[in-house]
Design a protein around this nucleic acid. Sequence first.
RNA 1: UCCUCCUUAGCUCAGUUGGUUAGAGCACCUGACUGUUAAUCAGGGUGUCCUAGGUUCAAGUCCUAGAGGAGGAGCCA
Length: 505
Amino acid sequence: MIQIKDFKDNIGIEIVVHGWTANRRSSKRLEFIVLRDGSGFAQCIVDANNVDERTYKNAKLTNQETSVKITGTVVKDDKQIGGYELHVSDLEIIGTSNNYPVTNKKHGVEFLIDKRHLWLRSKRQWAIMRVRNKLIYSIHNFFQKEGFVQADAPVFTGNACEGTSTLFASEFYGETAYLTQSGQLYGEAMALALGKIYTFGPTFRAEKSKTRRHLSEFWMIEPEMAFYNNDMNMDLIEKFIKYVLKDINENCKYEFEILRRDTGSFEKIINTKFPRLTYDNAVKILKGELEINGKTTIETLEQDLEDVKRGIVERKKEIAEREKIIAGGVKRGKRNFLQNKINNFKNEIKDLEIKAKNIPSWIKSANEFEYGNDFGGSDETVITRMFDVPVMVYNWPHKIKAFYMKRDNDAPELAKGVDVLAPEGYGEIVGGGERETNLELLIEKIKGHNLPMSDFEWYLDLRRYGSVPHAGFGLGLERLIAWICKLSHIRETIPFPRMYKRLFP
RNA sequence: UCCUCCUUAGCUCAGUUGGUUAGAGCACCUGACUGUUAAUCAGGGUGUCCUAGGUUCAAGUCCUAGAGGAGGAGCCA
């Protein structure tokens, strides 16, 4: 069976292809069917002069998402997306489709997410799922090449290690079990058995968050390396991000074209050393006390605000011009075209107005930031605004970090953690660090966090028997996809998102 | 848990200071057009205006409560 992706090897040959009609247009004796088969998209032409009556009639009967078996000759045509089209000689309908709900027009979020099982068929979602697939493959390739062993942590756990409020409880032979929110502790045990490991599995957080960057179920990659300190950890993170980005950039050109993702920034990220900021310096940058390329964050944001305001004025002008033309009276096609343009401008204005409202509050929040706190979402956006590449922030106040994070011997207030902040306002995509090896400090920390000591005895054994320096990090797959595809919401990065109050479909 | 906004046709949305019979585009059907890229052109009809209560001569529009949704805060990857 030939797939659309194989058309390039079958020019001039009559082949059979199975798929669905993504769209159909017609003129007097011609039917243009955009076929999708999962491997790609291709236009199929049914010419009434060249096919029997049954095939032409079938072609006219196809609607959006009718499944078909098409026989035809592959022809090169540079005008087509993908570069090839099919001249049909026979068309058979396999399954009909009437009133398909997810049309090629605009839909609202609620409707689309209710119809997620069908939404997945649309071109944009197809492209995202393919990027996701390539990214997963690339992640495995990287770690396997680096000598890591994939070793998975359990999904059911008895440890309530970071408070039960964010855990999903389940029943396990009469005991309460929780769905894992991190494989990290198990990762440490496995690293001490296998050297360098990575987990790759689903993670669950019962956070009642309704934001564009939260899922209740998401996939996390958690590498853990024996004999690594935090500097080595940061080197690995940087190498890792560059590797997958280069790979994706080379192998997903078609997908990025569909997503209209400008990949120009990837080249720079691949070839630039990521800035490594201590928490102290990150705070100074945030508060405008440290200049980057001769500018403070505050100056940069004020400039941004002016640009945004000017953008709004310009778009309002564009709208007014087009409304004047419509008021003067034009044909339907032209009017629709202009109206669509106007609607696009209106949406852009909406986004800009949100920005115009946000920027002053970002500046305020940045100014009022208190040393010792964790960065909020807007603070991360402000810091990353100053760079075109991912930024690493390390040496955090230990008080705001997890109990297992290694304290700095020279600066006891600090912990050797690292967060990687993605550019373009995508926030934290990686969190990690060196792990505490001092048994007494760990016990003290566990008590300090009011965690049940008995649940952690197995973990403390790792420090009792052949303890070594080790480090690792956690990467949220969906946040990485959202950034790479420049999506406005994380729900599009996973086939069936599980979010607060969203269990179906 | 808190704050802001939204809910009108299958879908996306208009609907003015409350005022006749609630509108448009798309989708769908018919017809026109030899190559279209969300094709275009002509025609065809559809509503518990989220629910309940209230104010009023009159409510899609105002008020109260509730349900559902979206964004954000907190928390986080």
